[in-house]
Design a protein around this nucleic acid. Structure first.
Lengths: 302, 302
DNA sequence: GGGTGGCGATGCCGTCCTGCTATCATTTGC
DNA sequence: GCAAATGATAGCAGGACGGCATCGCCACCC
């Protein structure tokens, strides 16, 4: 049941209704009067309803014409708004973004970036999904998310990235651990310690960093316990199950029973990236990237 | 700021979005593929926004295209609903009526008629304005109301009428009045009584009847007090100020301190009419008239 | 690996819609 | 009673839209 009339017809009828005269309405619409007469006539035939009562002296709307005029005005307004909204979407001022994020990101810069983004682009509605780096990469590839805050490094043919956060790896120890008395600890000192780590099937990205660090230090960590997320890992450390390696952003959040100690020697840094599909044209996404870039420029410069 | 696109464009874009392919969409729309391609292209040019991402292999909507498609679907639905509503208005199933009514009507059949009308035509919104007969005639002439329930008789070149109610004129007396003991009273017996009547500037129609009755009975009533409406008149009678003539529909509503007595002799009847402008084409109004006619047929027959 | 089928874009042509000018019938207002 | 204004009608021209044939491209398949 598609409509048999067009917005042009609606405009013409509204003009006639407003001016109460075909001629004046035609002048106002910058068309000749006969054209307007015929257009209104066509509209009436399309609807099968007489809309205008032509009294030879005065033109008024029939009751059905009034109903149509009211609805038509609404229709026109919404059409104009639609055009406007589409233009705004084109400029990236309006839209939807699906964004993934890791524990590391949410503990770090993500809130600040999102705040800045929402302030600058209030009409872009973003939905956030917590998920680890590997899952975000998959979701990016399959188009289930538009962007992800995830753990670097990342070199893939179909994604582009922008660094947004840089954390030194630090040691987290139970508060009563002997090494907690030290200002800093070296990795070698942790060689024999039981480790709490993320579950390997999901935690792969950061685990790679941890394994690499330990290997350089000459040992292979003894895994005492696996956990599902950063919150759980820190909790298990607080419980005295073992030690762990984490990043500053996580460790800065004070937690009873856990102390953070920097690693001695050259700091090893973990970057958190904003990632999106390469070549993506979504203007809203570009704006998110721009906000991330300028945020990174401001904070890394300071 | 009028929209530069038409509903036809919207339909085409929605079809492309739905089928994910120009060719399939074209088949579904019963047009050739090149025509569809150009229509979508024209729409994009009209909006100045790319809506469809042509990947050579797969056709998807750009973010702006998704915004437009969502709004466009709403727009089309409302356009269809508008056409439907206009057709309903044409058939008189939808519309607005402005209706005047007198005290006599609201005390009598008006509630029943309006109930039947609202049940039969729930989408016709009626607004009711209380007003005396003379004002309703003026409002009818000037088009401020579409119909009026008023006191007959009425013979005017520009109105048509339908009788809806027929009341005998009765006497209303203070309860402690000597004549209240009688089963019926004759007009002559009221010749010397003080009368409470409606204010003459507005009450002219019914007053004419009263004066006529009294004149036939051979006297001219002594007006003790004027009042603004039936409620006030009955109240003043209850207060013992005087007697009055009224109609059964008013008098049937029991009121402390007032008694109703029929007039002796041949009953004098007052008709209440539904009146509307002659030649009016409003289908909603016709339905109101039809309801009134059938109501009158049912009640006057019974 | 070349053939084949499906896709969207483009060019060309016919048709219908739309708009304009000129004119008419009717009404209004002086 | 005439002039001005209004809506309807007729005839004509331009443009938009749709259809057909075709092109270039890509994926799939034997």
């Amino acid at each position: 049941m598609r409509p048999r009339f067009d917005l042009r017809h609606v405009e013409c009828l509204l003009a006639v209704a407003e001016h109460g005269s075909f001629r004046r309405a035609a002048r106002h619409l910058n068309v000749a009067q006969p054209a307007l007469s015929r257009t209104v006539r066509n509209l009436e035939e399309a609807l099968g309803v007489l809309l205008v009562a032509r009294d030879r002296r005065r033109v008024t709307l029939t009751p059905a014409g009034q109903v149509f005029a009211e609805g038509g005005a609404r229709l026109l307004a919404e059409a104009a708004e639609l055009a406007h909204g589409t233009a705004r979407a084109h400029k990236g001022l309006l839209g939807k973004l699906r964004i993934g994020y890791t524990d590391f990101a949410i503990a770090g810069v993500l809130p600040d970036i999102v705040n800045a983004f929402r302030t600058a682009f209030p009409d872009i509605s973003a939905t956030f999904t917590p998920s680890v780096t590997a899952q975000q990469i998959e979701a990016l590839r399959e188009g289930r998310i538009d962007a992800g805050f995830l753990t670097g490094p990342l070199e893939l043919p179909f994604v582009e990235t922008q660094e947004v956060q840089c954390d030194a790896v630090v040691a987290l120890l139970p508060a009563e651990h002997p090494l907690a008395a030290r200002a800093a600890v070296s990795l070698q000192e942790l060689a024999e310690e039981p480790f709490v780590v993320g579950a390997s099937e999901h935690w792969a990205h950061f685990l790679t960093h941890v394994m690499h660090l330990c290997q350089v230090a000459g040992f292979r960590p003894k895994v005492a316990q696996e956990a599902a997320n950063s919150e759980a890992i820190v909790g298990l450390v607080a419980a005295g199950i073992g030690v762990t390696l984490s990043i500053e952003s996580i460790a800065r959040r004070p937690r009873h029973g856990v102390v953070m100690r920097p690693l001695a020697g050259e700091p090893y840094e973990i970057s958190t990236l904003l990632a999106w599909r390469r070549g993506g044209q979504d203007p809203a996404l570009r704006h998110l990237r721009d906000v991330a870039v300028s945020y990174w420029r401001d904070t890394s410069g300071a």
